[in-house]
Design a protein around this nucleic acid. Sequence first.
DNA 1: TTTTTTGATTGACCTTTGTAAAAAAAGATG
DNA 2: CATCTTTTTTTACAAAGGTCAATCAAAAAA
Lengths: 202, 202
Amino acid sequence: MLLYEMQSLMTKEKIINIISDNYSKLTVECQKELSNVSKILMLKKGETLVKEGQHSDKIYFIIKGCARAFYLKDGKDISDWFAFEMEFISSIISFFLDIPSPHFIELLEDSMLLELSKKDVESLADKYHDFERLSKTIVTKTMLQQQERISSMQFHSAEEKYENILSIRTNITQRVPLTHIASYIGITLETLSRIRSRKKRI
Amino acid sequence: MLLYEMQSLMTKEKIINIISDNYSKLTVECQKELSNVSKILMLKKGETLVKEGQHSDKIYFIIKGCARAFYLKDGKDISDWFAFEMEFISSIISFFLDIPSPHFIELLEDSMLLELSKKDVESLADKYHDFERLSKTIVTKTMLQQQERISSMQFHSAEEKYENILSIRTNITQRVPLTHIASYIGITLETLSRIRSRKKRI
DNA sequence: TTTTTTGATTGACCTTTGTAAAAAAAGATG
DNA sequence: CATCTTTTTTTACAAAGGTCAATCAAAAAA
């Protein structure tokens, strides 16, 4: 299905209903208010959601497509997070600490997103207990993903780290360039390439 | 002050009030109920809160002392988390996913703790919006600490990782053996020892 | 205090991974 | 289709950090 065809099928109401079902249930009233304050974005591959240095007070839910958070270390592009359909992404440092973003966020595919501002997240969380719970659920899931990632980084070889990400994100190599995968797991593209050719041979 | 002297000074009510002030405000009613379901523990250095393989459905707040979460990889002891005064610790994998704990948790000093069970956390969070918010705050802080840790692990030398933990936990070397610090930052004790002797010389 | 245990340091050696540069392959664009 | 750009692979070489073993130091236990 083409992205522009989805817009009519995927109404904001439906999307919010999916979030409610998959993360934490929201009352109809809360869903309505969430629908009023959120915004659908249709963006092309390569477009940027956040630039380094910006105060980014937005969080994005990915309806279709995928996005990548990355930063520059000594001029080198290092990937810090990938998000696919049904996942959230934001510049967490900027969003939660209200400081300029160290990250860029860009789209790796043509994408459809739901955008929410921190101000609205906060007022919804104040007003609705169930939205507070939803926020907690999202943060908890993120925390558990990070936990998994940390333990995969501790005392694991480049090959083990690559195997690990493949097991979690089965088809990531089809959607994300190897350079980004390499920096995400903390190895160079060259090392990743050697691992892959070693595996092919066997 | 000796640990046994603290018990009379630090009533559960006072401790819960401190949590409320430092994490997220709780109503008096909620504080009372929290006080009813939580329990103070006085434990000696070396004692174990959680063993690998156990279902651990408890979370601990450290009033005095410090604790360490670690796991065994190929028989080797690898530290995964430290918690000091005013911080929470639990076997997060077991607590949030209801599966057997991959971690041990042990005390690095004689300690005073507040213990809370998941069942009680959940019912408090259901009943009180402000307790739900407190939970979110604790999880969010943990997530941000993990974020910091991940970026310190990505493409940083052993020395940079050591400097980084020293800047975050200024006096950690006074309270935690170097072996544990080394495995926490993902290097061997020998490498850490070399870094330290290099720094001493200069 | 002496002994035992645990934690930290040092040295020799070796493996893994990074660096730099070039070539090849795959994708995008006119 | 042909060209240009980006991504990936390959090679040679260097450096960082791991492993193993011996020694030293400090803290607990007897």
